[in-house]
Computed example of a mutant assay.
Amino acid sequence: MSLLACYGGSFDPVHLGHLAVALAVRDALDAEVALVPAADPPHKDATHADAGDRVRMLELAAGGETGLHVDTLELDREGPSYTVDTLRLLRARQGPHRPIAWVVGGDSLLQLDRWHRWREIFAHGHVLAVARPGSPLGIDDVAERAPAVERQVGFRRRPTAALADSPAGGFAVLDLPELRPESSTEVRQRIATGGDWAAMLPPAVAGFIRERRLYGYGAAPEPSL
């Protein structure tokens, strides 16, 4: 049974860096990747675009990419988007045997012990951490910066390919091949101030932002080409 890798986030907006992570996970693990937009991120401020627009941007970004789809599970329920609750519902939907992994960035992994009922995550799925170049997530690296996290994930470590061999309980690290410069915060700032921003997004997403005039688009003149 193939691995279902769930990549959650605000995606406000989705950019090429997000897409690169999703494609790297898909290709490295031969996985089905679900992009899971958060309704109410517990660890962040309120989103800047509404849920419907964020979903549509994700659909445009994933369009035509085999193995990627958008799952609105967190938008379809009330309350904060706690990962443990999302995984519990995904497990109920997928059944007891489907391998499921929750994808996190390196910064999020090092703060995993601040997440709601974080130890229970492993009862419902694996954790797959994506390491950016220059920010390794080896045993010593995590132990030095987040000892409580390493105590929980250390004995769970396994090769990425092995996540598909069991439904839950594992931890693996996927090293990204290149450092991506994009961030949603910078995209929003550039749009609002008339900076150069479109190259940071899939073209269809950039077109949607212009059409919907999101993130203050049009408030400041864009640079001439």
Rank of each mutant, 00 (worst) to 15 (best):
G105I: 15
A168K: 06
P80A: 12
D50W: 05
A131C: 06
R56A: 09
V127T: 01
I209A: 01
R180L: 14
H97L: 13
S2R: 15
L35Q: 08
G125E: 04
A5H: 05
P223C: 06
A146D: 09
A162H: 12
G134W: 04
A20F: 09
H18K: 04
I209M: 06
L109E: 08
R156F: 04
G195Y: 06
H116T: 05
P41K: 02
D141T: 08
V55R: 12
G169K: 13
A220W: 03
P221L: 09
Q94F: 11
V55K: 05
A31C: 12
F11G: 03
A22C: 14
G207W: 00
G169Q: 04
G207T: 13
S184Q: 00
D107S: 08
F11D: 00
S135Y: 13
I191C: 05
R190K: 13
G134A: 09
A22H: 05
L176W: 08
A199M: 01
W102N: 00
V130R: 02
V84F: 11
G79K: 08
V21Q: 01
V33H: 04
R98C: 11
Q189I: 02
G63M: 02
Y217T: 01
G52Q: 14
I121V: 14
S81E: 01
A172T: 06
L137V: 03
T86S: 14
V187E: 00
D53E: 14
A62C: 14
L109K: 02
D50V: 08
A143E: 11
A5F: 08
H18Y: 05
